[in-house]
Structures are given as structure tokens and as C-alpha cells.
Design a protein around this nucleic acid. Structure first.
Lengths: 194, 194
DNA sequence: GCGCAATGGTTACAATTGCAACTATATGAC
DNA sequence: GTCATATAGTTGCAATTGTAACCATTGCGC
């Protein structure tokens, strides 16, 4: 009886080969796609990816606040803040403020913003279609499912915080990359400079 | 006879819904994964992702030059240069120069570098295993194939350069994000300042 | 040999990003 | 009411990244 061997050289083996390593391959794929799209948006519409994401959610869900936009775009609030201010400057958004809670903003696409969106959206879909042309309908459904499952799992691992086995011997400080040291001393938080 | 309707709301539709848009979802997935891994590498080994990639290829293919490393890691030569110099500074690499072509460097892991690598690699595989635990063996093989095909396709689209239908009316300059303007005037390339 | 384009690798600088600190407002305990 | 704590959003600064320019060397045409 012949020894059983691995049926095929696939994803998870016990040897590390960079170009079979799924995290690496995902990153490469996602990068090519993002850069491709980002260049076209920039060239054609003067839009960055964060700006585009903000417009996309507001097109579908008007009157969200900045944090709500952040939740729906997987961006952090700083990124949203910057995208919003750039879009406001170019009058693609309008911003109102909630009467009840004066901290909350109420964002929506302006007329101009909607006009731009109507032209970007088909472009985005066109790209996606070209990409998915590489797959048959069955594979597309599978892709959809796999991404969903992997994302869910990746989030779970991330939240577990310590997904790796405890390190026996930590790398000595001299060998670690320099820590990010905060230069500005913390400011005492009131009655300062006024 | 009832009207035929879309079998399921899946990937490519004619309406744009950010959280069904594959490029977006790929980017979110890849991001969670990368950040998770990057934090662990940094905490445990003081390694950035580019540094880790360089080490991973050199572990398997010693004596590559910087451009060869770049080719195998999907990084550009600047990124490789920076990762290499950081790794050299911490003595995880050695660098020699080709006698025949004095421009080429010959990189390999130092003893210390190999020691670090022996500890990082299992961690990487451990993460991958945890991630892929969300899928059954069949799905893993499919994932492998889908990533390969999509990457190939994405590269093709990218090289085609103009994957989008020609823009009828370009966005007026006033509405475009400010161009990246080079501030430093081109230096006349010799006999300057000497 | 000379001149010039191509290649390997580094450097300079600007744009982008990520994080913590910040201001302003709101909310809950007392 | 006061205080502390939480939340919305912005700002400042350092780290990272992307791009072009750069230097050194090589190879080719002549």
C-alpha cells in the first residue's frame, strides 16, 4: 500500500511558500484591484477611494452622520472626516446639523454630487463585471460566500486579540524596530493657552 | 408563466451596493488580515510586512538581488530597498556584491535572520490555518483557484490601461482634486552644485 | 576608445495614513 | 446645579508610502 501523499500542493501546508500564502495573495490581489480603480477614479473624476466610498453610501442612504458613514464603509472616523471635508469643499456634499444632538452632522449628496455619482457608479460596475468575467456563475456565487466567511473569521481572529501561541522568548529590545515615540507631551486638558 | 427574476442577489448586479461590491469586499478582507498579522509581527518580532516578505523569499531563495526580491514579493524596488536597509541595520541580512556586475547585490539571511525566520514562519502558518478553518477542504481548493484567476484577470485589466468606457465629458478642472504638483524643479543632471 | 540608453539601487520630497489628543456637546449620577 | 464619563467630529504630528530624480555601473553602437 503506497504512502498517502498530499493530494495537491495547496493553500495551507507546513512549509511556508510566500506565493502560496493566502494572506499574501489576498493582499496582492486586493492591491492590484484597488490601485487600478483608484487611478481611474482619480483621472476621470478627481475622486479618491475614501471619497468614493462616502459618496456610494450616501447615494443609497442619505442623511447619515459621519460615524454612521464610517460604520458602513469600514473606514475610521478620521478618514471619513477628511473625505467629507474634501467633498464639501468641492460641493459634492451638503452638511446639516441635527437639532436635537448638535454634535451630529447630517450628510447627503448635493445635486452636483449626485450627478457625479451617476457617472461613477456604472464605471465601478463595469470594472467589477470585467473582473468577474474570469469566473463562471457558479464560481461567482462561491466567491461571494468565501469572502463573507473569511471576513467573518478574520474579524473573529482579530477580536480574539492573541491568535498566536504565546511567544516563548521575546525579541530583545535592541533587535526590535524602533518604537513609535510620541514627541509632543500630553497637554493638560483644560485652561491651557487661553 | 411567472416573470423570471434574478436567482439571488449576488456579486454583480446593475445596482451598486457597496457591501456587495467585490473590490470593496476584497479590500476590507485583505485589510483585516494584513493588519492583524502586521500587529502580531511588530509586537513579537519587530518586523513590518515588507521586511517579513523579504525575509520569507530569502529564506527560500538565498542570494537574490534586490530586484529579484522585488519580483518575487510584488513590492517595488524602493520598498525592497527600505526593508533591506532596515534588516541590514538589525543584522538580519548580509549583503555582498556581484563581482561581475558591481551594481547587483547578493542578499541572504544572516544566522540571526534565519533564527528569527524559524520563529516567524510557524506563526504565519498558524494564522493562515486559523483563517482557513472557516472553509472545508473543497472550498480551500476553490479559493486557491479563484484568487489565482482573479489576480491574473486583474493584472490583464490593469495592463489594458483603459478598462473603462471613454469618458464623454471630463470633470472640469475646478472640480478635480488638486493635482499632485512637483515642487522641486527638475535638477539639471550634471555639473550642478559642485 | 566615446557617447548614450538601460539597469540596479538609493535618496528626496510630497501625499497619505494612523493614532492620540483635542473641542464641543450630551448624558447620567448625585 | 456639579462632576465625571461618553460620544461626534477635527486637528496635529509622525510613520509609511509612492513617485521621480538621482548616482553608479553596464552594455551597445560606432
Amino acid at each position: 500500500m503506497p504512502t498517502r501523499r498530499k493530494s495537491s500542493p495547496h493553500a495551507s501546508s507546513d512549509q511556508l511558500h510566500l506565493d502560496r500564502f493566502i494572506p499574501y495573495r489576498l493582499s496582492v490581489l486586493s492591491n492590484i484591484v484597488s490601485v487600478s480603480i483608484a487611478h481611474a477614479y482619480e483621472r476621470e473624476f478627481g475622486l479618491s477611494i475614501p471619497e468614493w466610498r462616502v459618496m456610494a453610501v450616501l447615494a443609497r442612504y442619505p442623511d447619515l452622520s459621519a460615524v454612521e458613514v464610517a460604520e458602513r464603509t469600514a473606514m475610521d472616523k478620521v478618514a471619513v472626516s477628511r473625505a467629507v471635508s474634501s467633498l464639501l469643499a468641492r460641493k459634492r456634499l451638503t452638511r446639516n446639523h441635527d437639532d436635537v444632538d448638535k454634535r451630529r452632522s447630517i450628510l447627503r449628496l448635493s445635486q452636483a454630487g449626485q450627478a457625479v455619482y451617476k457617472r461613477v457608479a456604472p464605471l465601478a460596475l463595469h470594472y467589477e463585471r470585467q473582473l468577474l468575467d474570469a469566473l463562471n456563475p457558479d464560481e461567482r456565487r462561491t466567491l461571494d460566500r468565501l469572502i463573507a466567511r473569511l471576513t467573518e473569521r478574520a474579524r473573529a481572529i482579530d477580536h480574539a486579540e492573541s491568535w498566536f501561541p504565546a511567544t516563548a522568548v521575546p525579541i530583545p529590545a535592541s533587535q526590535r524596530a524602533r518604537k513609535r515615540t510620541r514627541k509632543r507631551p500630553p497637554v493638560n486638558s483644560r485652561g491651557y493657552n487661553q
